[in-house]
Simulated assay, not measured.
Amino acid sequence: MKIAFLADPLAGFKTYKDSTFAMMREAAKRGHEIYAFEQSDMALEEGIVSANVARITLTGDAHDWFRADAAQETRLSAFDAVLQRKDPPFDMEYVYATYLLELAEKQGARVFNKPSAIRDHNEKLSIAQFSEFTSPTLVSSDSARLRAFHAKHGDVIFKPLDGMGGAGIFRIKSDGMNLGSVIETLTVNGARTIMAQRYIPDIVKGDKRILVIGGKPVPFSLARIPQGDEIRGNLAAGGVGVAQPLSERDRHIGDTLGPVLAERGLLLVGLDVIGSCLTEVNVTSPTCFQEITDQSGFDVAAMFIDALEQQAGKH
Rank of each mutant, 00 (worst) to 15 (best):
F5C: 12
D8W: 06
G12D: 07
G12R: 11
K14G: 02
T15P: 09
K17A: 15
D18F: 12
S19P: 09
R25Q: 09
E33P: 05
Q39M: 14
M42L: 12
M42C: 13
E46C: 00
G47M: 09
A54D: 06
T57F: 10
A62G: 10
A68G: 04
E73M: 07
A78Q: 04
V82Q: 02
Q84C: 00
K86R: 14
D87K: 03
P88S: 01
D91W: 15
D91Q: 11
D91E: 13
E93D: 12
E93V: 04
A109N: 00
A109I: 00
R110P: 04
R110Q: 06
P115D: 10
I118E: 07
R119Q: 08
N122W: 05
K124D: 06
L125D: 04
I127D: 09
A128S: 08
F130I: 03
S131P: 01
P136S: 04
S140K: 01
S141I: 01
S141W: 00
D142S: 03
D142M: 03
S143V: 05
H153L: 13
G154C: 02
V156Q: 11
V156T: 14
G163Q: 08
M164C: 06
G165H: 01
A167R: 11
G168Y: 02
K173I: 00
D175A: 08
E184G: 09
T187S: 12
R192I: 08
T193W: 01
T193E: 02
I194P: 08
M195K: 00
A196W: 05
I200D: 00
P201N: 07
I203V: 13
K205L: 02
D207A: 07
D207K: 12
K208V: 12
I210E: 05
G214F: 05
K216V: 09
V218M: 11
P219N: 12
L222K: 06
L222G: 07
I225F: 01
Q227E: 15
D229I: 14
G233F: 13
V242A: 11
Q244F: 06
L246I: 15
V260M: 14
R264W: 07
R264P: 04
L266D: 11
L268N: 15
V269D: 15
E280S: 09
V281L: 08
V281D: 05
T287K: 01
F289A: 12
F289H: 13
I292R: 01
I292Q: 06
D294P: 00
S296T: 03
D299S: 14
D306V: 12
A307F: 02
Q311E: 10
